[in-house]
Simulated assay, not measured.
Amino acid sequence: MRISTPKAIALTVTCALGLAACGTSSGTSPGGPSGGSSAMPSSGVDVGKASAVTPVDSATLAKAKEQGSVLLYSNADEQQMKPVIDAFEAKYPAIDLRVLNMNDAQTFQRYATETATGVRTADVVMGSDAVGMLDFVGKGNIAEYTDPNVKNLPEYAQLAPGLVAMSEDPVVAVYNTALIPKDGQPKDIASLAGMSDSLKGRIGTTDIGNPTQFGALAGYIGRHGEAGWKNIERLGPNSGVESGTGNLMQKLAQGQYSASYFVSGTVRALIKGDAAKVLNYAYLTDGTPLIPRGVGITKKARSPEAAKVFVNFLLSVEGQEAACEGGFTPYRDGVDCAYGVPAIEQAVGAGNMILGGYPEGIVKDKPALDARWKKAFGR
């Protein structure tokens, strides 16, 4: 059966974003040609000079090779992680990187269950839920390890003792270009709120229970206060709410939504080729929140040295380049990436990036933020 062009493109986007039941061929990286690695575009901005290589010491590496594997619980999906896995195992063929993909809440619950019963659990955890990660650290689940690469990173990279950002993922707006042409697409939340009455029911976002939505809201309100709430409360009655980015992007590609906001920036690497014929993303010029994706070694790690080698790789220039291929957002100097922090700064200006680790008071403020968002969205 021949699929009509709009449906065919929507299906291509759906498959590319890892939605629905579409297979991913081995050897195909996100946005890259089939059977080969992705050729990442140059950011075309000054990314600074890479610092000297700061690997783990030889004794740690030797023990890591003896341990032979590292188990990661990650909130990033398989397509995002593939370039990182491939690059790590190519550099350290004696260490097998096993990755289980799950959301942050599942990670915390699984770790609690496994440690209580004494079975093998994660050596490393990766997550974007600021409140959940801080609670996880507060309960003593993260080893207080400082990687040699930390001295080469900005101060905001250290999120908590033993917990460091491997990526600073922005939130973006995404538009269906067939329904809203590029020259008519709002570039900030205030403008989108202003036209939301005319788009009632055709604007989408994710639920406040999604860590990306909560992180974006906390950052945006932290910057704009009551003026920001006025925009959010105008958008609320006019917005459809999805549980996750997958459903949101699928409905955008199929034309059920014309616009979306506070979308995880990891979709940027996937909006190309046929997908770019339908979708376009834009940074938010009245404040682009960048949400840290934290990574830490667990206290109950069975392969703690192998975990140190993996975290060291993630924070290196080489590791950040591999992360860029998956759509993560590298932030350390010397990483040429079209999705990196310098490229975002060029697009919106340094003053319009909401960047700096976890927002102050985010744990204390969460109940009030949740409640006011739910009221605005009628949840």
Score class of each variant (00 low, 15 high):
134 L>V: 01
158 Q>G: 06
109 Q>A: 11
299 K>F: 03
67 Q>K: 11
113 T>L: 06
102 M>P: 04
178 A>Q: 14
359 P>M: 01
15 C>Y: 03
250 Q>A: 13
265 G>P: 14
358 Y>D: 08
18 G>R: 10
182 K>H: 00
66 E>P: 02
74 S>Q: 13
188 D>N: 15
32 G>S: 08
376 A>M: 08
261 Y>W: 15
180 I>C: 08
62 A>L: 12
335 V>L: 10
314 L>Y: 09
176 N>D: 04
80 Q>N: 09
174 V>H: 05
160 A>Q: 12
45 V>Q: 07
263 V>P: 09
208 I>T: 13
256 Q>Y: 02
275 A>R: 08
20 A>K: 05
351 G>A: 15
179 L>F: 11
336 D>P: 01
277 K>C: 04
310 F>C: 00
84 V>H: 02
255 G>M: 09
320 Q>M: 15
113 T>C: 00
184 G>L: 14
21 A>N: 14
110 R>Y: 02
124 V>E: 05
306 A>C: 05
286 D>F: 06
339 Y>V: 11
68 G>I: 02
233 E>Q: 15
217 L>N: 05
37 S>Q: 11
84 V>R: 01
217 L>Q: 12
322 A>Q: 15
201 G>K: 09
188 D>W: 00
79 Q>F: 05
10 A>M: 06
32 G>C: 11
72 L>T: 05
3 I>N: 01
27 G>Y: 01
104 D>P: 02
29 S>W: 15
319 G>F: 07
47 V>Q: 08
291 I>M: 00
100 L>E: 05
96 D>H: 13
232 I>Q: 05
90 A>D: 15
37 S>C: 03
201 G>P: 00
319 G>H: 06
20 A>P: 00
346 Q>H: 12
16 A>L: 02
176 N>I: 03
224 H>Y: 10
364 K>D: 15
171 V>G: 03
306 A>V: 03
251 K>Q: 10
48 G>D: 06
42 S>W: 06
215 G>Q: 07
257 Y>I: 00
323 A>Y: 12
123 D>F: 02
290 L>E: 09
350 A>D: 05
300 K>C: 00
359 P>T: 07
201 G>W: 14
225 G>Q: 04
298 T>D: 09
341 V>D: 11
123 D>G: 01
217 L>T: 08
46 D>N: 14
347 A>E: 14
112 A>E: 15
297 I>G: 09
167 S>V: 02
143 A>K: 15
374 K>E: 06
292 P>V: 05
214 F>A: 05
84 V>C: 07
176 N>G: 13
160 A>N: 12
114 E>S: 01
133 M>Y: 01
